[in-house]
Design a binder for these strands. Structure first.
Length: 952
DNA sequence: TTGTAGTCAATACC
DNA sequence: GGTATTGACTACAA
């Protein structure tokens, strides 16, 4: 998987490293010798337990001694015992003193995660208890402490890049282009710092790192080589120098990209090609828009593409930077701000790269080439506030917050005074330095001085604030990771922690308050406005469509804004979803068109994000009806319309979750279905596709697929058996044939290597179900025992429990909805509502058919979903499982009693459901689910593993 | 690290 | 040949 992407990244990095290395060869400074080629030096430092100073950097300790340098930390030599507690203490002291976060420290100095740093600092193990590897961080810390320049340097990084740390941390250690970019950015920025601070390159000499994460070191190296090649006093030539290096790297990368061009092209053409098959876009074919969701197996090349797309946020900035250069230039040049003005200028200048010249298609290309290009380019190019260059007019009015510039300009409008300062920093006129397929994520600009002063000392109700944030995130389907990165420059974990356990304002340091201030600004609409999900992943965008009608950004009353926005979104979605349309052109300010992928409208993800609540049951019911009536298969429908496999479609249609239980991603298929249903012509188109599929000529074009999918049957099957989802939508065209065929050999080489699917024997399942009854959330120990008893892999047992819990839950949802519907709930969910589903309500759409309608299904669930009596029997039989019996005894009575509780309730609801057998699985499911719920909640509440300790 | 949601895809079933 | 089931996997959240 991701082979293409990985290969490219790897290639790019190698190119860059080579470039830097080549330059370094001409750098004869001692430091360069010290560090050697970045790549290898880091490897050495990794593999060697020796502290860096032993690698030959006497200058390090010879530098001005750090005030923080301790006796113990500074004087310990290799192999000598260290006072780990003291080192940790000193490090903590320095981190606090310089306001350096553990994350940054861990990343740049130790090559460890924040969590690990916290562990090490809070609970340093005695030296004697540490393994070689465990000692490594202490060596590094000691070294870090040995020279204050290290600390200052790190502080510099922290101070300047606060908000971008996540990017670095998330950067794969293998070295992505993001990482490269980060390094280069740092190098450039640091040059400024050095000039300003008069700090020589020696400060970086001590950048001792683990190789895999050694940006610090590489940075130092690139920095040094840059410096060594020109007078440090010459700012401009310094820039020139860096630029020259980067330009070279860029050229080389471009060359690589050109080499890959055909591949990219082939992929981007696919959607368009589909229309050649007589399947216009209006059929809502599943297109690469969701490629990020697709497995790479169908096409690594495509996946590469989607991988790039996944980084759209970054690309966005890049493109805006390019297309928006003139626009950005108009922004105020007043610099200054929290972290100083000059660096930010370079931040942006180096943080932005152009796409032009990379061979990427223009934004204004045929909208039908959509998805891929639409996601990456149109949005980007046209997001800039001025002069959208795209034919996708719609986007021009989306002052994307992907662009820090548009954020800035909005922000500047809102700030009381001097608000145009830091955030509206101009895009430097310097030419783009580096072109990469992906670009570093947009950073979160520091708070402006005005913001800082204005908010920092006003008490904030952090609980209320975080609640509002949570609500808004949930409402817009924004994930914590994106929010953290784009709004706060925090990791998902930090966001989660902060939102769930906000500290009291008075307990927060200034630094700790910053995220909360950002949250407030975000709620106010002062930071990038809204984050809305975007293709591939959630991203922020400023919904200009609603903004155009909503209060001006100057009046950021969050609630008002929310409500207005919400209303409008709903209206838009209603309109778009209810209005069958395939031709309407996107016009800003007008009701949104049917968001057909490939058209200039909203992407499906955006539609999902803005969609009003849909009746998933009604939709699936209707879809099943239509498919049945027209003899269309789940596979074709799923693969071409939903982008899902047949199995998923089956599952989806049989057990749709209620809308409110669905994640954003989970809602997408329903929105797609609804959109598909809106236009009856879509059915015909799908039928056309079906016919097309069967054409012999196409069949002949994909013999390998036939083999692959039906290796045991031969090649006599129809095409529809031989195309997977993206294959179908993307490759069913002559243009792609060669590509397909090229992939065939590879794909055919592997099948036998696949490990066989595990099939649990009925006894094993029964045993697992009994264990589940006893303990739906078994401890690792129990799992081990179960696996051992059943002679299964631990992972199999774990997976089984995961799956079983998940599936039980889902069935419960169905039951509940059904019960509610039968008692006067949603009419659409009421059985028998629309024609032809008298049976469906009790089978197709609902879970019963799968649960009981089949021998396997009923057997599958009986063991678990039993009546109290049966449950008791099961428990008796459970003695055969030591693990289960061990825990079941103390709980046996409890379980029974718990089984009894929901019984009456569920009986009532179950019997109230029409066309349902009173003795059907509903009752048992409810019981089981109820029980599981209760148990789990109790376990959670008690925070214990052993339920027998519960007190009732 | 653990739990959940969403899927895939092999394969069982009709 | 279509549909249902289900073990496994990935991403995300806590």
């Amino acid at each position: 998987p991701l082979a293409g992407k990985m290969a490219l990244n790897s290639l790019l990095q190698r190119q860059l490293m080579q470039t830097i290395y080549t330059k370094a060869l001409h750098d004869t400074s001692p430091s360069s010798v010290l560090f050697g080629p970045p790549h290898y030096a880091t490897t050495n430092s990794l593999s060697s337990p020796l502290p860096p100073q032993s690698a030959g950097s006497p200058e390090v300790n010879g530098l001005a001694p750090s005030p923080s340098q301790s006796e113990g930390a500074g004087s310990t030599s290799e192999g000598e015992e260290m006072d780990t507690a003291e080192i940790a203490r000193q490090v903590k002291e320095q981190l606090i003193k310089h306001n350096i976060g553990q994350r940054v420290f861990g990343h740049y100095v130790l090559g460890l995660s924040q969590g690990s740093v916290s562990e090490i600092l809070a609970r340093p193990k005695p030296w004697s208890k540490l393994t070689i590897r465990g000692k490594e961080p202490f060596h590094k810390m000691k070294h870090f402490l040995s020279d204050e320049q290290n600390i200052l340097a790190l502080r510099s990084i922290q101070g300047r890049q606060r908000g971008n740390i996540t990017t670095r941390i998330r950067t794969p250690e293998t070295g992505s282009d993001e990482a490269i970019k980060s390094i280069l950015e740092q190098a450039k920025r640091e040059l400024q710092v050095q000039k300003a601070d008069g700090v020589g390159e020696r400060q970086w000499r001590s950048g001792y790192h683990r190789g895999s994460g050694s940006y610090f070191q590489i940075y130092a190296h690139s920095l040094r080589l840059v410096e060594s090649s020109q007078p440090p006093s010459s700012s401009s030539s310094s820039d020139e120098n860096i630029r020259s290096i980067l330009e070279q790297a860029r050229r080389e990368m471009e060359a690589q990209q050109v080499a890959l061009e055909p591949v990219l092209k082939a992929n981007s053409m696919a959607p368009t090609d589909l229309s050649l098959l007589g399947s216009p876009l209006s059929t809502l074919p599943y297109t690469p828009i969701a490629q990020s969701l697709k497995k790479p197996s169908t096409s690594p090349l495509l996946d590469f593409h989607s991988g790039v797309k996944k980084e759209m946020g970054e690309v966005a900035v890049s493109d805006v930077g390019v297309d928006g250069v003139p626009k950005l230039g108009r922004l105020s040049e007043s610099g200054g701000g929290l972290g100083g003005g000059s660096w930010r200028e370079h931040w942006w200048s180096t943080g932005l790269s152009e796409r032009r010249g990379t061979g990427q298609p223009s934004v204004s290309e045929d909208a039908h080439s959509q998805e891929d290009s639409k996601e990456k380019l149109p949005r980007l190019g046209s997001t800039a506030p001025v002069a959208p260059a795209s034919s996708l007019d719609y986007w021009k009015d989306w002052p994307s917050s992907e662009s820090p510039y548009s954020q800035s300009s909005e922000l500047s409008l809102q700030m009381p005074s001097g608000s145009e300062t830091p955030q509206s920093s101009p895009l430097p006129s310097s030419s783009p330095l580096l072109t990469l397929p992906k670009v570093a994520k947009p950073v979160v600009p520091p708070l402006t001085p005005e913001q800082y002063e204005y908010y920092m000392y006003q008490e904030v109700d952090t609980v209320d604030l975080t609640q509002q944030v949570k609500d808004k995130l949930a409402k817009n389907g924004i994930c914590q990771r994106i929010f953290g990165e784009k709004v706060l420059g925090l990791s998902q974990g930090s966001v989660s922690d902060m939102l769930s356990r906000p500290k009291h304002w008075s307990k927060l340091t200034q630094k700790g308050r910053e995220p909360f201030i950002r949250m407030q600004l975000w709620l106010n609409g002062e930071l990038g406005q809204a984050l809305l999900p975007m293709p591939g992943q959630t991203q922020e965008i400023t919904p200009k469509t609603s903004a155009s009608c909503s209060p001006a950004p100057e009046s950021p009353l969050s609630s008002a804004e929310e409500s207005v926005k919400s209303q409008q979104e709903e209206q838009m979605c209603q309109a778009s979803i209810q209005e069958p349309s395939e031709t309407s052109e996107s016009q800003p300010g007008t009701p949104l068109p049917l968001p057909l992928p490939g058209h200039a409208g909203l992407s499906i993800q955006e539609m999902v994000a803005m969609s009003p609540e849909l009746d998933t049951y009604a939709i699936t019911k209707k879809v099943k009806e239509v498919l049945t009536d027209n003899n269309l298969g789940q596979r074709l429908f799923g693969e071409s319309i939903l982008g899902l496999t047949q199995g998923s479609v089956s599952d989806l249609l049989a057990r749709p979750k209620p809308w409110h239980k669905l994640s954003l991603k989970g809602r997408e298929p329903f929105v797609r279905m609804q959109l598909w249903l809106n236009d009856p012509r879509n059915v015909e188109k799908l039928m056309d596709m079906k016919r097309m599929e069967k054409k012999a000529v196409l069949h002949m074009c994909f013999p390998a697929y036939m083999k692959r999918r039906h290796s045991s049957i031969g090649e006599s099957h129809s095409l529809e058996s031989g195309l997977s989802g993206s294959d179908l939508t993307q490759s069913a065209s002559p243009q792609n044939l060669s590509q397909q065929q090229q992939q065939q050999p590879q794909q055919q080489q592997q099948p036998h290597l696949k490990k066989p699917r595990v099939v649990l024997a009925p006894e094993e399942k029964e045993a697992l179900k009994r264990a589940y009854q006893q303990k739906p959330y078994p401890s690792p120990k129990t799992i081990e025992e179960l696996a051992s008893q059943l002679n299964l892999k631990t992972s199999t047992v774990i997976n089984w429990f995961h799956n079983y819990r998940s599936r039980i839950r889902r069935e419960l949802f169905i039951e509940e909805i059904q019960a509610a519907a039968s008692e006067g709930g949603s009419p659409s969910a009421r059985p028998g509502k629309s024609g032809g589903e008298g049976d469906n309500s009790c089978d197709g759409t609902e879970s019963d058919s799968t649960a009981e309608g089949r021998p396997s299904g009923s057997e599958e669930r009986k063991g678990l979903l039993e009546s109290p009596n049966r449950s008791q029997r099961d428990e008796e039989g459970e003695a055969e499982l030591p693990s289960a019996s061990g825990t079941s005894r103390p709980r046996g009575g409890i379980i029974d009693s718990l089984f009894g509780i929901p019984e009456s309730v569920s009986t009532a609801t179950a019997t109230a459901t029409p066309c349902r057998n009173p003795k059907d699985s509903s009752l048992r499911k409810k019981k089981a689910a109820n029980l599981n719920n209760i148990i789990h909640r109790l376990e959670k509440a008690a925070n214990r593993d052993e339920p027998h300790e519960w007190e009732f």
